[in-house]
Design a protein around this nucleic acid. Structure first.
Lengths: 222, 222
DNA sequence: TACTGTGAAACGGTTCACAGCC
DNA sequence: GGCTGTGAACCGTTTCACAGTA
């Protein structure tokens, strides 16, 4: 507590609802677009309309983290972009590894959306010797046995897992042992990880199943 | 109401919480694995432990749709697989198109997890003339202008959208015009669609941002 | 006037705890 | 004894409505 009356109105980030955090990503994406299109300020109701949310929700979400708005004006787009990036931690710059260089892994290596958001893929890993040593989109592919070394040397902090289901838990264990702090799991398995490692799971088949359910149940009660 | 006292204890599927439906996919995935490994029955608490959920949650979720369990026994794995497939509608067999054959689109065309869950990708579309006419993983690539015709002929019902952000809304509009009933959107834009078309959005950068937030806020209040 | 920030109310989902059943 | 199905209590999130501010 060095000096001044630093107002502590922020909440402990750990008890912010998960839904709020994922909307933050949406706000960020839309705000960047607005900045690019030259818009200087935006109100909660305009932003909400663009994203299919209510104005109150937008304000409540942002208010978890501080006072970013200007009454009578709205939110300054560039200011809010900077604030959200800082909240999400994407201003820190993250190094990422891709584990599993199949179809999906290759797609991630070539995905342009990551760099702009502060994520740099610096290495890929695979068990297939035919792939090891090659590079895809400028990223070198290493053997899985080199994981620990490369993670240490290149200071890799996050991993994206795109290996076959049967190999996923073991690959995840290796990532954890190598000291990685967060994993996005694209393999269709439920991983069990120590709770100090963050996990987000994405299952492509599951996404289609959600659509299937919605469509199959569109009309009234069976 | 042909005969018998058909008990109507099911709830209108439209007011089942979304979270329940996405857990259904998890149950299904795990149950299939259990069936494959020869397990005949499973209790809600075992299934919950495998997925990181409570036993009560598993039972409540399933009870939205009927009485699938056997007191004293648990759930019969194969029975429950069939029930969930029917609930999700994946037993109906869906035809799917991929729009945008870039890195991610190609990965989807080669993704093996879809067929097993009842989804068949029967066509792909792209604006790039160099790609049109070719096939990827046995799926023919058509020009985007052929969308309406091919969707009709091949009776395509769902679409996966993997085009650049700038092209996404227009492509989505074309999908809707062609009569598609559900879209999984991988393009980093918020689409606006008529509400009779179902939508699931997956943003890869957003997933990494969730991890970033979790890791950056792992420790106590700043 | 136009807008934010926020308590309070309303809503919806999860957990609890137990009756009923095998 | 072991397990499901479920009403009731609990808890977290969303919506409402308005005081406060530029």
């Amino acid at each position: 507590m060095s000096s001044g009356k630093r107002k502590v109105d922020q909440v402990d980030p750990r008890d912010v609802p998960k839904a709020v955090v994922s909307r933050l990503s949406l706000y960020l994406r839309e705000l960047r677009r607005l900045v690019r299109s030259g818009k200087a300020t935006i109100s909660s109701s305009q932003l909400g309309r663009l994203l299919g949310l209510t104005d109150a929700q937008v304000r409540k979400d942002l208010a978890y983290f501080g006072h970013f708005g200007h009454p009578g004006i709205g939110y300054r787009c560039d200011e809010l972009v900077a604030a959200i990036r800082r909240i999400l931690g994407t201003d820190l710059g993250w190094t990422v590894a891709v584990i599993g260089v199949g179809n999906l892994g290759r797609a991630l290596l070539g995905y342009e959306g990551f760099a702009a958001q502060g994520f740099r893929i610096v290495a890929a890993f695979d068990v297939d010797r035919a792939r090891v040593g090659k590079a895809v989109d400028g990223v070198t592919i290493y053997g899985l046995e080199q994981l620990a070394d490369v993670v240490r040397e290149r200071q890799i902090r996050l991993g994206m897992l795109t290996v076959p289901a049967a190999a996923a838990q073991s690959a995840a264990d290796q990532l954890v042992a190598a000291g990685i702090v967060g994993i996005v799991n694209f393999s269709p398995v439920t991983l069990s990880l120590p709770e100090e490692v963050s996990l987000v799971a994405v299952d492509l088949a599951t996404e289609l199943e959600q659509i299937s359910f919605a469509v199959a149940n569109r009309n009234a009660t069976r």
